Simulated assay, not measured.
Amino acid sequence: MVSTTPEPDLSTWPTGRLLAVAARLVEQRWVAVLDGMGLTHAGLIALHTLRDGPLPQRTLAQHCQVTDQTMSRTLDRLAKAGFVTRTEDPADARRHLTRLTASGRAVHDEAVRAEPALLGGLGDDDAFRAGLLDLITRLSARD
């Protein structure tokens, strides 16, 4: 059956609604792509944060702005998938360092390469990215 409902005139929508719909559409696509790689959004953020070297779990949680418990669950999934390892910190035996494995680095790189296609190439547009960064920075400053 063909729908007879007219297409909405998006140009009449308030900016907040446009941003919310755009974010939801990108998130839905991103979740599907990441799922196909064995990742979650939280897992990708952790891998991204670990790309420059190993970190203790608490430091990683702070950098990712999540609780220690949330990071623990994320790291459990990443370790089970073979994307990270946890080893004793030679400087402090009470702590463990989390580091990327070769497959963790590879899946991170694959996710980074997949991103532009999700956004129809906008992820590579410097002006678009600059606008998003400006928006986030300005809105964050109000908190």
Results as ranks from 00 to 15, higher is better:
residue 38 G to E: 03
residue 109 D to F: 10
residue 107 V to Q: 09
residue 114 A to Y: 07
residue 54 P to C: 00
residue 94 R to F: 06
residue 34 L to G: 07
residue 127 A to H: 12
residue 72 S to I: 04
residue 31 V to S: 05
residue 17 R to T: 04
residue 39 L to G: 10
residue 95 R to Q: 07
residue 105 R to W: 03
residue 14 P to D: 03
residue 113 R to M: 02
residue 131 G to Q: 08
residue 16 G to L: 11
residue 114 A to P: 10
residue 93 A to N: 04
residue 30 W to C: 10
residue 107 V to F: 08
residue 114 A to E: 02
residue 118 L to Q: 02
residue 74 T to R: 12
residue 11 S to Y: 13
residue 121 G to A: 11
residue 66 V to Q: 10
residue 107 V to P: 08
residue 28 Q to E: 06
residue 82 G to M: 04
residue 120 G to V: 06
residue 43 G to S: 09
residue 75 L to C: 08
residue 85 T to P: 05
residue 10 L to A: 13
residue 5 T to F: 12
residue 102 A to G: 10
residue 103 S to Q: 11
residue 64 C to N: 03
residue 88 E to T: 11
residue 116 P to F: 11
residue 103 S to C: 09
residue 80 K to I: 02
residue 128 F to S: 04
residue 74 T to A: 08
residue 136 I to G: 12
residue 53 G to R: 06
residue 100 L to E: 01
residue 7 E to P: 15
residue 46 A to R: 13
residue 3 S to F: 05
residue 119 L to M: 15
residue 99 R to Q: 01
residue 96 H to R: 15
residue 22 A to R: 14
residue 63 H to V: 07
residue 142 R to W: 00
residue 80 K to V: 01
residue 81 A to F: 08
residue 130 A to M: 10
residue 24 R to Y: 05
residue 98 T to H: 02
residue 11 S to K: 13
residue 11 S to C: 11
residue 27 E to F: 15
residue 99 R to G: 00
residue 26 V to F: 15
residue 70 T to M: 10
residue 19 L to Y: 11
residue 74 T to Y: 05
residue 52 D to N: 14
residue 80 K to D: 00
residue 123 G to Q: 01
residue 26 V to E: 09
residue 55 L to I: 03
residue 72 S to N: 11
residue 129 R to F: 07
residue 60 L to A: 04
residue 73 R to N: 07
residue 143 D to H: 14
residue 53 G to L: 01
residue 1 M to L: 14
residue 66 V to G: 10
residue 49 T to F: 09
residue 104 G to M: 04
residue 34 L to P: 07
residue 12 T to W: 13
residue 96 H to I: 01
residue 107 V to M: 10
residue 71 M to K: 12
residue 51 R to N: 04
residue 113 R to I: 00
residue 83 F to A: 09
residue 90 P to A: 10
